[in-house]
């Protein structure tokens, strides 16, 4: 029986289907070891407070502009798209509630995570990949610094803790965009809009969104760091690490969204 043999592009050696399955499980084991090392190093001294705060600034502050723009546009567009359907039933007064539920439960966490995967994830993948292929990580290690703690732990903590902050900000900006549109068309006051918007929002909605954002932030950080830290083959490897980070992060974010929504609906 003919075997499925292909030439491996990386090392030019023939790899069977079985070899590829083994490689897949080896990669999963590598990811497990990487996460286990993160958990160990994140909770043992010495802590990299200064670098973590610097990374929080990079992840949070430097993403504000794009989060503001996308959040605001999302709020306006979602309001405009929802109005015709509600007006058929004479229910445009429900717009603030509908928009706030959509934004807080799903849109704000997802949009923030997808923007962060593209902007922050690719940045981490490319930066660590570049440091790896130019031996900067080795240089750090031989100069008496633990590069995993300095580079990986600080970045993963920063993405994990800044994503919820960015999500809350994106939600607020989205609501402001929605308010402008509602105010323009329905002449609703700001107080009424905020009152209607938060009437239907429960603690569980906010808790679930914050929890989701923590999970998305961790996913983006750990994916970028893992792929960057393991990058090889020069500039090609750097590009591949950045690209793979975005693709893998987005894929995992949607999987997590699906799982968390099921759990929250079960709890509701």
């Amino acid at each position: 029986m003919a075997k499925d043999i292909r030439m491996d592009q990386q090392d030019g050696q023939a790899k069977t289907f079985g070899d590829r399955i083994m490689d897949f499980f080896a990669s999963l084991f590598d990811i497990y070891k990487f996460i286990a090392r993160f958990c160990k190093e994140a909770f043992t001294a010495p802590f990299e407070f200064r670098e973590t705060i610097r990374q929080c600034f990079n992840v949070g502050y430097k993403s504000l502009a794009i989060i503001t723009l996308t959040g605001f546009i999302t709020g306006i567009v979602f309001t405009k798209q929802s109005r015709p359907s509600l007006s058929e039933f004479g229910a445009t007064s429900w717009l603030p509630s509908l928009i706030s539920i959509a934004l807080i439960r799903a849109l704000a966490p997802l949009i923030t995570a997808l923007i962060a995967a593209g902007k922050i994830g690719s940045n981490i993948g490319a930066e660590l990949g570049s440091m790896n292929v130019t031996e900067q990580i080795d240089a750090m290690e031989v100069s008496g610094t633990n590069p995993f703690r300095f580079l990986v732990v600080s970045r993963v903590l920063a993405t994990t803790f800044m994503l919820p902050v960015l999500m809350v900000y994106a939600g607020f900006i989205g609501l402001m965009g929605a308010f402008l549109n509602v105010h323009q068309n329905e002449l609703t006051s700001f107080t009424t809009f905020i009152h209607d918007a938060f009437t239907r929002i429960s603690f569980l909605d906010i808790f679930a969104s914050v929890f989701k954002s923590l999970a998305y932030g961790f996913t983006i950080g750990i994916t970028g760091c893992f792929l960057g830290y393991k990058a090889s083959q020069g500039t090609v490897g750097v590009g591949r690490a950045a690209n793979s980070t975005v693709v893998a992060s987005m894929f995992l974010i949607f999987i997590e969204e699906m799982v968390i929504v099921q759990i929250v609906n079960y709890m509701r």
């Binding site: 440091m131 031996e135 080795d138 290690e141």
Partner: peptide, 20 residues
Amino acid sequence: LQELRLHIGFSFQGSALYDG
């Protein structure tokens, strides 16, 4: 190992200066 490394200087082929 980390302590020992403080007594060893390593000059890399590509210099490995931190770009940032």
